[in-house]
Structures are given as structure tokens and as C-alpha cells.
């Protein structure tokens, strides 16, 4: 039995594997003094970073502002980037840190020690609820997940990161990321019952 027999999407799985970082060449070019390499990095990752940040902050404009801050910070630090993690997870880490800083600066009344607390509130905001009833139930179910499981699930499902990248962002091992992902999925299935089937 193989992946195709199970109805999986091997292509999407392969693209998530970051064994060979597709951005490595751009980093090398930037280190060699090519300023335009950074523009290409921005083009590749601004969308993903924006959606990641958007889950943390309350408005689209704020998300854009935080993404700009994140890229400015990345630009200054790119010279010392040595490739311990993938470029994408490095950028996403910066984006998460910027989003958390933004929350600390702008929403002192909200607990912001961990990103997941902020996310809970975002998903509970009525204006944010979109789509049909199932989507509403899914968002609510996600908001009820323990912080770590929620973070791993969202990074995996919404940001389309590999387990390795998820583990880099969640500060855990790849196996722990897989375990958290499994329990998040299991919990969602339990919460939703047969609604999604």
C-alpha cells in the first residue's frame, strides 16, 4: 500500500519537506552583496508571513505593519544567518516574535505571554468568523485545543510547514511535533463528533 492508494497527495507532502532549502541560494546571493536577493525572499514569504501574523493580530492593516517590521528585522539579521534552520522557519520565528511584541505593545489588557492565548481571542471575535457553520465549529474547536497542540496544528495545516519546521518554531523535537499534531487532530475529531464526516 502506498500514499496514492490511500488517496494522499504526495506532491504537497514533498513540497513540505525542507531537506534542501529552496531559499539557500538567495541567502548566499545576499551574503555576496546582491541586495535584490532580499526582494525575492520578501516576494516568496510575505503572503505566508502575513497569514501567520494575521492569526495573532486583530486587523489586516496591523498584520501588514507587523510583517513589515519582521522583514526589516530579518534584513538586518540576514547577514549573520548561518542556515541552522530553514529560511522560512527563521522568518516565521521573527514574524511570531514581532507579532507577540506588537500584542504586548498594543494590548496590555490581553494575556500575551504565549501566542496561543492571543489566537484564542482572535478566533472568538465575531467579525472573524467566516464561512458556514462547520467552519465556525472548527474554529471554536481549534480554540479549545491546548496551546502547544493548537500551535502545531495551525503551523502544519494553515502554514503548510514540514514537521521539521514546525518543531523548530514550536521549540520541540520533530517526534513531539508529530505527537502534538496527532492529539490535536484526535481532539478535533472528538469535539466535532461526526460533523465533518
Amino acid at each position: 500500500m502506498d500514499a496514492l492508494a490511500l488517496g494522499l497527495s504526495p506532491l504537497s507532502s514533498v513540497t513540505r519537506v525542507a531537506e534542501l532549502d529552496p531559499d539557500r541560494d538567495l541567502i548566499v546571493a545576499f551574503h555576496e552583496g546582491q541586495r535584490t536577493a532580499f526582494d525575492q525572499i520578501v516576494r516568496r514569504h510575505q503572503r505566508g508571513m502575513w497569514h501567520l501574523v494575521r492569526r495573532y493580530v486583530k486587523s489586516d492593516a496591523d498584520a501588514s505593519d507587523v510583517v513589515q517590521q519582521a522583514f526589516v528585522r530579518a534584513f538586518r539579521g540576514l547577514g549573520s544567518f548561518r542556515g541552522a534552520a530553514s529560511v522560512r522557519s527563521w522568518l516565521y520565528r521573527i514574524a511570531i516574535n514581532c507579532a507577540l511584541s506588537w500584542l504586548r505593545d498594543h494590548r496590555r489588557e490581553t494575556p500575551t505571554e504565549i501566542a496561543e492565548d492571543a489566537l484564542v481571542e482572535q478566533h472568538q471575535a465575531p467579525a472573524r468568523i467566516e464561512g458556514n457553520e462547520l467552519n465556525v465549529r472548527l474554529r471554536e474547536a481549534i480554540s479549545q485545543l491546548p496551546p502547544k497542540q493548537k500551535m502545531v496544528l495551525e503551523l502544519r495545516v494553515f502554514d503548510d510547514l514540514s514537521f521539521k519546521e514546525v518543531s523548530e518554531l514550536a521549540d520541540c523535537s520533530e517526534n513531539t511535533a508529530k505527537v502534538n499534531f496527532h492529539y490535536a487532530v484526535k481532539r478535533l475529531r472528538d469535539i466535532l463528533g461526526g460533523a465533518h464526516e
Binding site: G7, R54, S59, D60, V67, Q68, V185, R189
Partner: peptide, 28 residues
């Protein structure tokens, strides 16, 4: 069941309205 759930999650509409990417790139 797992595959169905993950597919449903991935089909969920994204939160917020995406900005103009070229504008954001220019701002950066």
C-alpha cells in the same frame, strides 16, 4: 477520517482580507 478532517481544515477560508502584495513589498 483523519484525512477528511485535515482536508476540511485546509479548505477553511483564511482569516482577513489579503493586502496588495506588490504594495506590501514596496512598503518593505
Amino acid at each position: 477520517a483523519t484525512r477528511d478532517l485535515l482536508a476540511t481544515l485546509r479548505e477553511m477560508p483564511r482569516t482577513g482580507n489579503e493586502p496588495d502584495w506588490s504594495e506590501l513589498e514596496a512598503a518593505i
